[in-house]
Design a protein around this nucleic acid. Structure first.
Lengths: 124, 124
DNA sequence: TTAATATATTCCTATTTAGGAATATGTCAA
DNA sequence: TTGACATATTCCTAAATAGGAATATATTAA
């Protein structure tokens, strides 16, 4: 897992494009041996093991020993924190965008009229 | 923005916890001056400017000059790539989990019976 | 113009971390 | 046991990057 310090949270874990590739490959819901991933993604074996270790540490994949292979499988629940976080912004690109923008613009206008430059931390 | 090299994509941009705090603060949909954010999040001003620069570069915030202030506003559409990506896994933690698991286990069993150790890249 | 305020940028440094090379560990087959 | 294969780990190095300090830039006020 690239030495000692690994992404501590799932947001950092998925920031790595290769790890998203690994996730994509595992998103068929099936088990895959490390070497399958090595061949498919054309990465070095240690690199794959490290990425899988990182994903495992944040709960995005699980592993079982099966013979001399370690079979990795996606554990999608590990991605739920990301989903929940970004889902709170979903409404912005659906129908409520206009309302929100209008509210913001109205308030901004108020501020301009009042000449309130924000140097007083009264908003806190 | 922390020197020259900045997160090139939105996944890396939101990996930073402070930047998610900035996003949270802007998620009221209104404009905020840099100094508002400095005061609210208790970060140094250069740090905030750098984070805002990173978020702007990936399209998560927009900025307008207003007097001597730069007013930043959330641009939620910039988060859509993350949303779209993670949304493809939504089904896993809803109702279809069992079907997928069962299919995976059936296939895994086939592999075991065939003693297919995966050393032949026939899956490609 | 000068001073004050708001923000951005540059330089520097420390930390994080991805990848390569080599090696270690573990499992199976002969 | 020995050898082949599968995977993990360690060591090293290079790149990315967060933050601090100092400075630059821009805008407004006097």
């Amino acid at each position: 897992m690239t030495r000692k310090t690994q992404p501590a949270d799932v947001f950092s874990a998925i920031a790595e494009p290769r790890r998203r590739e690994v996730i994509a490959m595992l998103s068929d819901g099936e088990e895959h041996a490390v070497n399958d991933i090595v061949l498919r993604l054309k990465l070095a074996q240690p690199a794959v093991s490290k990425h899988l270790g990182a994903l495992r540490k944040v709960g995005v994949v699980t592993v079982v020993k099966r013979g001399q292979h370690r079979m990795y499988r996606l554990h999608p629940a590990g991605l739920k924190p990301v989903h929940d976080w970004v889902k709170t912004f979903e409404r912005y690109w659906t129908h409520q965008v206009d309302q929100i923008k209008q509210r913001a613009e109205r308030k901004a206008l108020e501020r301009m009229i009042r000449m309130d430059d924000g140097s007083n931390p009264k908003e806190e």
